[in-house]
Amino acid sequence: MTSLIWQRARSGRASRSSLRGAGLDQNASELTFANRGPFSARLEWFSLPLLLVLWQGAAMVAASRFFPSPAVVAAEVVDLTLHGHLVKDFAKTLLRTFLGFVVAMGLGGVLGFVLGRVRGLDRLFGPWVVVGLNMPAVVIAVICYIWLGLSEFALVLAVVINKTPLVITTIREGVRSLSPDYDELAAVFRMPMARRIRLIHVPQLMPFVMTAARTGLALIWKMVLVFEVLGSDGGVGFRVGIFFQYFDMAGILAYTVVFVAMVMLIEHGALRPLERRVARWRQDPP
């Protein structure tokens, strides 16, 4: 009986009273909310078209070259792709972002793990992390450019120096919250360190890694663009800087639209599938 009501509840056909009768009251509100799921999902599909309609309307009202319509921006995207530097600029920015992200995550992950595990090192180097967290990003970029010149290395290094303390802090918190029960399990069965890290520590740290990755990527995108404006020979930030000098709003918005599309692609094409895979053990069986 209960399982039948559960099936109905999952398919949205159970009444709240039948759930209460089956002793599933505490789940009733959750299920009722879940029943709204398909409609909410459909609403999400209308979100971006609605934004475009509002943008078009506002552009028509403003009727200014500083407020181009979506159609104008779309045409600009096509033009910049075919005749401009859009593809080359995005390739450069993507590569810088990728390098900065990988190095900062790797370095911050290892350092965060060590500081989370070794109290003495955390006491010694913890204040350095605080300093790193509070250093203005632009100052670090300027210092790197002055010391190392306007090079790719200086730009990526500035990104890494800015981002690594944030990764360290997140991973260190994760390490501090590792369950001692599982450490005890590993100790009693004499699990070697490499297996402990792979099977016991890393799975517990994955939510923290995902948080660091998501916030890190968002931060690194923005930093790379700002540093490209400050000093580089190409990239999205560099090009937007040039558009700014000519007050070319269509160009700025064209790059912005492609940039947002790329971020959404990474979010839905890489981060969310990865997150689902990591959380597979928490999900209901198919």
Partner: peptide
């Protein structure tokens, strides 16, 4: 162990 203490992320 007193609790089952299985690793929940492993089958």
């Amino acid at each position: 162990f007193q609790d089952a203490r299985l690793l929940p992320w492993l089958d």
